[in-house]
Design a protein around this nucleic acid. Structure first.
Lengths: 230, 230
DNA sequence: ACGCAACTGGGACGATTGACCCAGTCGCTG
DNA sequence: CAGCGACTGGGTCAATCGTCCCAGTTGCGT
């Protein structure tokens, strides 16, 4: 393989490692699997990194610092706060659905960091970043619609992160797009209820409806309108 | 070690495996680590199970079927629906906090099932069970307070599962009890808003406040039991 | 052009892994 | 109480793991 400065080799190995982790988990990310994915020789690994743990630690660092998957608050201001949040959540969900392996790798790395004593605090930093990103989105959404949050935004950011995490985890497990869409609608309702009603004329009383744009199958299966307190 | 029927040996090995997974992850649950935890000899492993994968598959099965960690809806009906839900969530959270390793092992097993082709559908079944348990709790809470859900309960169950998952994951990462309590309060508010207001005199308009008992009490019910898979 | 440091290739090592084998021992049944 | 099937113990195997070593090769500064 062609010569290559160490720094670029490091970068490529980190990317390859992430790829392998997404596919086979952290335990499957052996030094040989990583260099194979990066199309390198085994010796190059220990020339670029001191050890496998060294690479893993740097990977977590990089991944946490470059995390950008967030609500994409739409530019157009059509609709009220609730609708804006819902579209932002749908945009996030589309990212997840487009690349499920990415989220799986993130969860995998989080758990690895959680059970590795030498990486104590990394998971905490990761969630701090999630919350910061969520907070920015919430502020933007409120500003865009002229609403004001009635709950401290950092607190709402934690709520939003919990919701997106929960939605993502459930979807990774069952792959049910429609259910995810319904939960997203619920999340948007719940968050919008924490702000002053937007000044638009719309009387915000959005009972959830079949969500146009969801896949056509799955339809009326477990959606019985009869619930009641058994 | 003393003689022992295969069935009991299997049970013990499953428990030991769960313990090891909680401590060291699935990848750390080697045959030797498991038999060591169970205080057995290595040969007993392959006498009780065909292979390591066999044990893991059976463990996931057992764990999914015996999952019982849910909202403990309190027996006393003091307070409205929102308060009842909040206390139920706090009860769940106490279980998690009393034994964080249990939840970590559950996430670990879910991810293992997710990336193991031969176990396709197990994660889906797991979340189906979560939803069923959540649905039962929601119905109970509504019945207890005389409220009626205005959204299909199976749908709300998915929302509740997403919330608890998100809360749990965030707490496992940062260990922030107070933040978890705030998110729980948010979750209770959000869910209660999906029901008809309870007939009690209280005009439910709970802007959140500094949470008077957030850090010290919560000790209504403390089961620091062993978790166990049996 | 030249030399030296940066980099590569291939092999090797010890440790650990899942799996297996088989001679021995236990304990129930008849 | 005798015997046979159920069970145990300890050793062994090939495969794979992380890590290391070192003789070669490349490319850059001078």
């Amino acid at each position: 393989m062609a010569h290559m400065p160490v720094t670029e080799r490091r970068t490529r190995l980190l990317s390859a490692a992430f790829e392998v982790i997404a596919r086979s988990g952290v335990s499957g990310a052996t030094t040989r699997a990583i260099v194979d994915e990066a199309d390198m020789k085994l010796a190059s690994f220990h020339y670029a990194f001191e050890s496998r743990e060294d690479l893993l630690a740097q990977l977590v660092d990089v991944v946490v610092d470059t995390q950008e998957v967030v609500l994409g608050i739409p530019a157009d201001t059509a609709g009220g706060l609730r609708e804006l949040l819902e579209r932002g959540l749908l945009s996030y969900f589309d990212q997840v659905r487009a690349n499920p392996l990415h989220e799986r790798a993130m969860f995998e790395l989080t758990q690895y960091a959680l059970r590795t004593p030498s990486m104590a605090g990394v998971a905490e930093r990761q969630y701090g970043r999630y919350r910061a990103l969520a907070e920015a989105s919430l502020r933007e959404a409120a500003a865009r619609t002229g609403c004001a949050w009635q709950t401290p935004v950092p607190e709402l950011a934690a709520d939003l992160v919990a919701l997106t995490d929960g939605i993502t985890l459930a979807w990774l497990a069952d792959g049910d797009d429609e259910r995810a869409h319904r939960t997203i609608a619920f999340a948007a309702r719940a968050l919008a209820a924490e702000a002053t009603p937007d000044p638009s004329p719309r009387p915000h009383f959005p009972r959830n409806k079949p969500l146009p744009g969801a896949d056509s199958d799955v339809s009326a299966n477990e959606h019985a309108e009869t619930m009641e307190t058994s």
